[in-house]
Amino acid sequence: MNINEILKTEESKKNFLIGLVFLAKVDGNIDETEKYFFLNAAEGLQLSEESQNAVNLSWSQEIMSELKFENNREKLFFLMQGIQLSNIDNSYSDKERSFIYKVASDLAISNESVERIEAWVEEGIKWQNEGIKLLDLEG
């Protein structure tokens, strides 16, 4: 999936990153590598300086503004990426999960859709872990 084929507007790309910043902040552990990652992502998405500043500012904001996306495809893509990002450390915390469900509700996405995405991510993690085990077959 190419992000630029799904998120087509500056506003959608900016909101995508702002939402992910707030998700990253949910656990309370913010390190500089996360901030650097999002700065690079904003540049990679070719966001304007104004949008990059908005993403940067979101690290210090307490309340996330409403995320606006063009359509359900963009909303679901945000949720997919958010759930995958939450699982990157093999730990999808209750705080992260609550955040995802709250945002999904705000975006008018059903719990059933979120549950399907969660199952897809979980299946992907299992698949990846099985691949890692294959590396030890001959050892």
Rank of each mutant, 00 (worst) to 15 (best):
I88A: 14
N40T: 12
Q84R: 13
S51V: 04
N72S: 14
M80R: 15
K68M: 07
N87T: 13
K25C: 09
Q61P: 03
N87K: 09
Q52H: 05
F38G: 03
R73F: 05
N56R: 14
E32F: 06
K68I: 11
K75L: 05
G19Q: 02
E66R: 08
A54Y: 07
Q46M: 09
Q84V: 06
K35N: 11
N87Q: 13
L17R: 01
I18K: 05
K14R: 15
W59Y: 14
L76I: 15
N56F: 12
K75Y: 04
L79V: 06
E34M: 07
L76F: 09
S60E: 15
A54W: 00
L76N: 01
G44K: 11
N29I: 13
I88W: 05
F38P: 01
L85P: 02
N72E: 10
F16V: 05
E32H: 08
G82A: 15
I63M: 06
E50A: 10
E66V: 05
Q81Y: 06
R73N: 12
E32G: 00
E70I: 11
L85I: 00
S86Q: 08
E32N: 13
N71C: 03
F78M: 07
N56E: 15
E34T: 06
I63N: 11
L23H: 07
S48M: 07
D31C: 05
F77I: 04
L39M: 10
L79M: 08
N87D: 12
L39H: 11
L17D: 05
I83G: 01
E32L: 09
F78I: 10
A54P: 01
D31A: 02
V55K: 01
I18E: 10
E43M: 06
A42Q: 03
L23G: 02
T33G: 06
K13V: 04
F37R: 11
L45T: 01
S51H: 07
T33P: 00
N29A: 13
L47P: 01
I30V: 15
V26L: 10
K35W: 05
F69V: 02
